[in-house]
Design a protein around this nucleic acid. Structure first.
Lengths: 211, 211
DNA sequence: CTCTATTTTAAACACCCGTTTAAATTAAAC
DNA sequence: GTTTAATTTAAACGGGTGTTTAAAATAGAG
């Protein structure tokens, strides 16, 4: 019937959608395979295990996003030695939105997956991300630190995790929040408008003077 | 052997510890009842279901914290009509730390439960909190809005959710972060120092001018 | 002390999970 | 066209889950 890559792709497509919507542990392989219209056992055949499927789903986005984001930050630092925090966060917007060209709803799916990953993972995803994309992350952290030199490293550690929390939580519940904002305030938001709202919030928090 | 309230309390004590550490869905009733040294069926006998046990665990803290926090905010608004965001967030610190008098590790357990609750719940906890403590929450939201009158309501909606994300995520992973900060920077933190670090971050983000 | 109501207990129920197996099918190589 | 390798399939495995049942034990009331 279908060739190998077709089945693999069908699984990845169905899995990323369901993972983003309901989280990893709340999504069973039976639900994924029924949505993908493939046999249950094909997940283990093609990916080995559910954990490896989760990593494959994330890798498909990270492999696209990370190199581009990294390159943009290098470019910014080369062109403007006094780049602000707002500049650094803002330069990530375009690479994020470009994920919509990779797959429909790519940007929000990716961000939601990232949120779920950091919230749910018992370690294997953190390990996977830091070992596979650690250099890119380090580069981002260093760029942020350089843009707020008045913040000591230990304080910056905390503020970056506050920032991670803001992003991760907002993105994981973005669909619900966008709906509520529409109903309560008549605001028509999407992932891009939410991203543009959160950046000033993050920049202000990260750079506020200590004491 | 033990009287009724003893068994109920043993279950609540064991459950809140495990829920805070590993989350709700990752904690089985069998694990709770074995740690509490009570029979498996006693959870359903005393609480009806796992969902109701979760709510009971949270209610034990919310019933103490919410009225006190609420009263403190009323008191602050009466005494200082120009209270800052920092003042409002800071006035919650003492009621939070007082939870350590209710039970050992009360403060961090409560905040972690709150984090887990907002991250994990598919709705029943959000519903439970807003219907049972909605007035207190409204009061808090109004106090924050009054302290940042230059932020439009719709924008404030988003910033309060950013704030919720920061708090919830930080608290849910507080133990791990405190340990890492100790290892990497030699900082000896606890829940109180983390709370005191996060307040300026939140205040700056919530009140930063739009555009 | 006796009777009744409450609580505890062990066992089973019904269901869902990720994974494995071995046979059937399809595709590729010669 | 035959043979070999890759893939798909249905079925079962072993284990864990929340919940229910009915009998046993305990506590409280008269």
């Amino acid at each position: 019937m279908a060739n190998r890559s077709d089945t693999k792709t069908r699984i990845l497509d169905a899995a990323e959608k369901l993972f983003a919507e309901r989280g990893f542990s709340e999504t069973s392989l039976r639900l994924i395979t029924s949505k993908a219209e493939v046999n249950l056992a094909s997940v283990n055949y093609h990916f080995g295990s559910k954990k490896e499927l989760i990593r494959a789903v994330l890798a498909r986005y990270l492999d696209v996003f990370m190199p581009v984001a990294s390159a943009e930050i290098v470019r910014l630092q080369a062109s403007d030695k006094n780049a602000s925090l707002n500049d650094i966060f803002s330069i990530l917007v375009e690479p994020l939105l470009d994920l919509n060209k990779v797959r429909a709803e790519g940007t929000s799916t990716f961000l939601q997956l990232l949120g779920r990953g950091y919230i749910e993972s018992q370690g294997h995803l953190r390990w996977f991300i830091t070992t596979h994309y650690g250099e890119h992350l380090d580069q981002f952290v260093k760029a942020v630190a350089a843009s707020a030199p008045h913040i000591p490293p230990a304080e910056m550690f905390w503020r970056l995790h506050f920032t991670l929390g803001t992003v991760v939580f907002t993105m994981a519940s973005a669909d619900a929040l966008i709906e509520i904002a529409g109903a309560d305030f008549g605001e028509q938001n999407n992932i891009e408008t939410v991203i543009r709202k959160v950046i000033p919030y993050l920049s202000a928090g990260v750079s506020v003077p200590v004491n």
